[in-house]
């Protein structure tokens, strides 16, 4: 464990908590893409199948349980409890265009052709594009509530901090995982224009407005 990975995990934890607070307090999931949340739930389910078979540490297990529970819980809140506030009209990104290519790629490009390894690889590839429906929805609505933009900033920062973690591990531990690194870079790059808007607008107290 290193400071970058810890900061990344805490940023990820913060993002999920911010999202749950937003939905619970406003009792609405307006502006949130349910499709992205479904993809995140798939990412965690396919990545944490070893939850009971491969114990790493109490921290690792606790975080996996939280991520699994919160992502499934968020899908429940969006599609069942606060279904009436879910914005179907703007959440239209075709997620099959994300699921199929990442599934095929994980069958072709992986470290080992085994069920667990392919599911892990699929989860890594899917996570790198899972935010697209959400970013697409923000571009379609043209704006986002400030709490939603804080959620996106924390979520985008988490994998950016993981990149620093991978640089640290390469130089100090001689460890690297090219699949996680390439996917992590793609994932972080997808947030770049949002990061620019967040830093230039939201941090100055303005609402996040995309140029129409």
């Amino acid at each position: 464990m290193n400071i970058f990975r810890l900061a990344g995990d805490l940023s990820h934890l913060a993002a999920i908590i911010i999202l749950l607070i937003k939905i619970w307090k406003t009792r609405s999931c307006a502006g949130i893409s349910g499709r992205s949340q479904v993809l995140f739930a798939i990412v965690f389910i396919t990545r944490y199948l070893d939850l009971f078979t491969n114990f790493i540490s109490a921290y690792n297990t606790a975080m996996k349980v939280f991520f699994l529970g919160s992502s499934i819980g968020t899908v429940y809140l969006m599609y069942l409890k606060f279904k009436a506030t879910y914005d179907h009209n703007h959440d239209t990104f075709r997620i099959e265009f994300l699921l199929l290519p990442t599934a095929l790629l994980s069958l072709v490009l992986n470290h080992e052709f085994s069920v667990m390894e392919i599911l892990w690889t699929f989860s890594i590839y899917l996570e790198s594009v899972a935010i697209l429906p959400q970013l697409f929805m923000v571009s379609k609505t043209g704006e986002a509530e400030s709490i939603t933009s804080h959620y996106l900033f924390a979520l985008g920062s988490y994998r950016g901090l993981y990149i620093l973690n991978w640089i640290y591990r390469y130089y100090f531990e001689g460890f690297y995982d090219i699949i996680a690194i390439v996917a992590g870079c793609v994932q972080t790059i997808l947030y770049c224009d949002f990061f620019y808007l967040y830093i230039t607008k939201v941090l100055k107290g303005k609402k996040l407005q995309l140029p129409a």
């Binding site: 790493i56 995982d177 090219i178 699949i179």
Partner: peptide, 10 residues
Amino acid sequence: APPSKDKDEL
């Protein structure tokens, strides 16, 4: 070094 098998990252 090739990636280690034990996935210790979240």
